[in-house]
Design a protein around this nucleic acid. Structure first.
Length: 841
RNA sequence: GCCGAAGUGGCGGAAUGGUAGACGCGGCGGAUUCAAAAUCCGCUGGGCUUUGCUCGUGAGGGUUCGAGUCCCUCCUUCGGUACCA
């Protein structure tokens, strides 16, 4: 469709022509892509720069849903706005494309995950481009591209060099029948969710990342982040710092002690028994002969349970007495040692001193097994001899605690820790819930871990003719992990048609023998690591790659990393509140310590868009049949109406239900906007009232856009449009300003109107309008007058009236006199421009 | 349980401690039409004795000339998390 460029001053088009989005949307989308309108260029002279980033999507086969464009539209409006104000903006998009669905599809159909990914990426790109976003498409990245994951592997090697990547045997859910490892969520009552086969907890060699080494830095960094309080709280809770003390309890009759961790050393005198986790290393040592069988049976049962079951079973406390006794170091009391699965092997020391008087879990356990309960804390005015019918968990005053009686427990807590340290019985200690990150997956479609190991002929192998690539028996020395040399990166995935892990839990790569085994020049054999990285890996640093996506010498050039980061605004769903954001912050801090990046936090400002629910107020899902497809919306309502609606629904962060009727509303707004520009354009000077309204609108829209309050910014434009449609002419200044204000929100119609106003494209590169405070002032305004807190009159008063004048005007008004008659006016509060409040008794 | 967010018309939502309900949807009435859709105009929180009065922002208290907004207690919903000693 060809749009004749109208002659100067003649914007008149046939009055019956409607905004034809079906023709106009693709026209401008093509224009932007072809002209590279939104190409971001590193220009050291442009000091005002911004990096506006969306959490890049996993390109699923289902395509875009309406939640994606919510955040994308918000960042797009913001990016376009910043560009109008002269800021150099980096606004990229890419694909987090490794992941399980493509692999499962491969197992089912034999289609290579690479093919599935390629197809899905193409579809996502098409859908996203149809939304008219101002991404710099020259910076598109794909985590599955070897040129990209070369640097993911590079970072892994750096972590390995720094001792932050290591191997460990950690328990996983292993289902021998299915021949696979299962996630906690996939195990129900000790059986696999699919098929109902038994699942065991089994230690398997895994690669781990030592995120706990950064626990304190990750925690402290949270304080300075401009993120929603809720998300910051979730990160803090996940890291889970707790301060307390470790205390040694001697085991009676043994030359050994068991160390416990407690946050309440002030309750030490109340420890009436001790519990060690079923997986505790000393359990079988301390168990007495007559108790041993029962203890071991209990430990075996506990080992068989998945974490999920252990959580589900927690209402009912179980446990077994070991027969052993420990000595309380503060009072010499002999207390029984039990084992119970409410004590976790992986936290603290895997053993606790139980204080049933002051811990709810210990109280429940002591009650169930009839163990003694002693009060050692009471309220300030409480009675130390009063029995406890539930655990008293607050701080208070120490009692039944020997020499410490009467001391406030919050002080006692620190005093006793020092006392224990002096006596060599313990020390203060900080613990974190955060665990090291299990970084390996027994899967095909992920980044290969760039590590290899020496290997040797296995038992019974013929040493002379031995060749592990033929499947000869092999012994791999996993204790000697060797890094793939940097110049051999990327280490790419081998081709295979077999994507399933085998019955031993070995990943598919283990069967790619030609890839797995190789010889050095001296004829020594080596075996590659066959686990791959988890999906999180690629998303841990993609925001750095966007700054310089084609760099071949570094993950990005120094100049790019110095110029663009940190991300000035990061927008995405709250479902990534913990894992992605914590992992990315971790990698970023390591890179910062290495001197690779200049800032210690990657995302100083984060906004989480609220989920969009279905029209029924429920989460959108196929099974509920309440899914809205963006493609359908674009066809029926146009891109701009869709963008406007998603922003007009309510505040960005809020959870909001979809309302199809709302789409009609924003489309109608655009039709009306189009019809406004059918009016004759006047070059006359603006009348004062019009100028006042226009400048008020500029101020409101500017303020709302800059602060991401898009819903009210749109409302202001709707309101202005309603007024403007009532007059016969459209002043050129109004016409042009309005197009500019609209352009970040509804860029297609804005480009078209800008063209028809006689300008060359693109409106997106025009300067943002500014307002003049002086022009906001009107000659008079409506002043509400209250009597005793109720509005009784509204007076039209001159804008320049002073307080005394306003007070006089208010008190003289007949409607006010009616309410003050026969009363004494005690006080008059006058706020010029706001209201007058009269107090009369 | 704990942490976080939020409760305002028929619905989505607006309101620097200062006219509660902007804007949009829906509804009602009208114009246009043979008719309908679309479009345009007007009205639209409840109640009443309707130039006006009164009630009204989850419930109850409090601070203030004035509270949706600030403080206290409680209720409900949503999100996260959980035997973390």
């Amino acid at each position: 469709m060809v749009h004749p460029r109208p002659a100067e001053g003649d914007a008149a088009v046939p009055a019956d022509e409607r905004f034809d989005f079906a023709a106009i949307d693709p026209k401008w989308q093509r224009f932007w892509v072809e002209e590279k309108t939104f190409k971001a260029v590193l220009d050291p002279d442009k000091t005002e720069r911004a990096y506006v980033l969306d959490m890049f999507p996993y390109p699923s086969g289902a395509g875009l849903h309406v939640g994606h464009p919510e955040g994308y539209t918000a960042t797009d409006i913001y990016s376009r706005y910043l560009r109008h104000t002269g800021v150099n903006v980096l606004h990229p998009m890419g694909w987090d494309a490794f992941g399980l669905p493509a692999e499962q599809y491969a197992i089912k159909t034999g289609t290579h995950p690479r093919e599935t990914t390629k197809k899905n990426v193409a579809n996502f790109r098409r859908q996203i481009q149809a939304l008219g976003f101002s991404y710099d498409w020259d910076r598109e990245v794909d985590t599955t591209d070897p040129a990209y994951f070369r640097w993911t592997q590079w970072i892994f090697l750096k972590l390995f060099e720094r001792g932050l990547a290591y191997q460990s045997e950690v328990p996983v859910n292993w289902c021998p029948k299915l021949g696979t490892v299962l996630a906690n969520e996939e195990v129900i009552d000790g059986l696999s969710e699919r098929g109902g086969h038994p699942v065991v907890r089994r230690p398997m060699r895994q690669w781990m990342l030592a995120i706990t080494a950064y626990a304190e830095e990750l925690l402290q960094g949270v304080d300075n982040l401009d993120w929603a309080e809720g998300i910051k709280a979730m990160q803090r809770n996940w890291i889970g710092r707790s301060e307390g003390a470790e205390v040694d309890f001697k085991v009676d009759g043994h030359d050994l002690s068991i160390r416990v961790f407690t946050t309440r050393p002030d309750t030490l005198f109340g420890a009436t028994y001790m519990v060690v986790a079923p997986e505790h290393e000393l359990l079988s040592t301390i168990a007495t002969e007559e108790r041993r069988a029962e203890v071991e049976a209990y430990a075996a049962t506990a080992a068989r349970k998945s974490e999920r079951d252990r959580q589900d079973d927690r209402k009912e406390k179980t446990g077994v007495f070991t027969g052993a006794y420990a000595v309380n170091p503060v009072n010499g009391a002999k207390i029984p040692v039990w084992t119970a699965d409410y004590v976790l092997g992986g936290y603290g020391t895997g053993a606790i001193m139980a204080v049933p008087g002051h811990d709810t879990r210990d109280f429940a356990f002591a009650t169930a097994f009839e163990l003694p309960i002693v009060r050692v804390v009471c309220a300030e005015d409480g009675d130390p001899s009063e029995p406890l019918d539930e655990a008293f968990t607050q701080h208070g005053v120490a009692c039944n605690s020997g020499e410490f009686d009467g001391m406030r427990t919050d002080i006692f807590k620190h005093r006793i820790a020092e006392w224990l340290a002096d006596k060599g019985l313990g020390e203060t200690k900080v613990n974190y819930k955060l665990r090291d990150w299990v970084f390996s997956r027994q899967r095909y479609w992920g980044e290969p871990i760039p590590i290899f190991y020496p290997c040797f002929p296995g038992e019974g192998a013929d040493r002379e003719l031995w060749d592990p690539r033929r499947g000869d028996a092999v012994t791999i020395d996993y204790t000697t992990p060797l890094p793939v040399p940097y110049d051999q990166l990327p280490l790419e995935l081998p081709e295979t048609a077999d994507y399933k892990p085998n019955e031993d839990g070995e990943p598919p790569l283990a069967r790619c023998l030609d890839w797995r085994f190789f010889q050095d020049d001296d004829g020594n054999w080596f075996a590659r690591e066959t686990n791959t990285m988890p999906q999180w890996a690629g998303s841990c640093w993609y925001y750095l790659r966007f700054t310089d996506p084609d760099c071949t010498t570094d993950l990005a050039s120094f100049e790019a990393l110095d110029y663009w980061p940190p991300v000035s605004l990061y927008v995405g769903g709250a479902e990534h509140a913990v894992l992605h954001l914590l992992y990315a912050r971790f990698w970023h801090k390591v890179l910062f310590d290495m001197g690779v990046v200049p800032t210690d936090e990657p995302f100083p400002r984060l906004v989480n868009q609220g989920m969009i629910l279905g029209e029924d107020g429920e989460k959108m899902s196929k099974s509920r049949g309440n899914v809205i497809n963006p493609d359908d919306m674009l066809t029926e309502f146009g891109t701009d109406a869709f963008r406007l609606y998603e922003m007009f629904m309510g505040p960005l962060e809020k959870v909001k239900p979809w309302q199809m009727a709302g789409m009609h509303g924003t489309r109608r707004f655009l039709y009306r906007m189009w019809s406004l520009y059918q009016k004759p354009i006047s070059d006359a000077a603006l009348p004062d009232e019009v100028a006042s309204v226009l400048h008020g609108l500029i101020k409101k829209v500017t303020d709302d856009t800059a602060n991401l309050r898009f819903n009210t910014g749109i409302a202001a434009m709707m309101e202005a449009l309603n007024d403007l449609l009532k007059v016969d002419v459209l002043h050129r200044e109004v016409a042009e300003t309005l197009v500019l204000l609209l352009s970040p929100y509804a860029p297609h119609i804005a480009e078209e109107l800008w063209l028809r106003l006689g300008h060359a494209p693109s409106v997106s590169q025009e300067p943002w309008p500014t307002w003049d405070e002086a022009k906001l002032v009107k000659a008079s305004y409506l002043l509400p007058v209250m009597v005793n807190g109720k509005v009784r009159a509204k007076l039209e008063v001159p804008s320049d009236s002073d307080e005394a004048t306003l007070e006089a005007l208010a008190l003289a008004d007949a409607r006010i006199v009616k309410w003050t008659e026969g009363k004494v006016v005690r006080k008059v509060i006058v706020k010029p421009g706001r209201m007058v409040s009269v107090v009369a008794k």
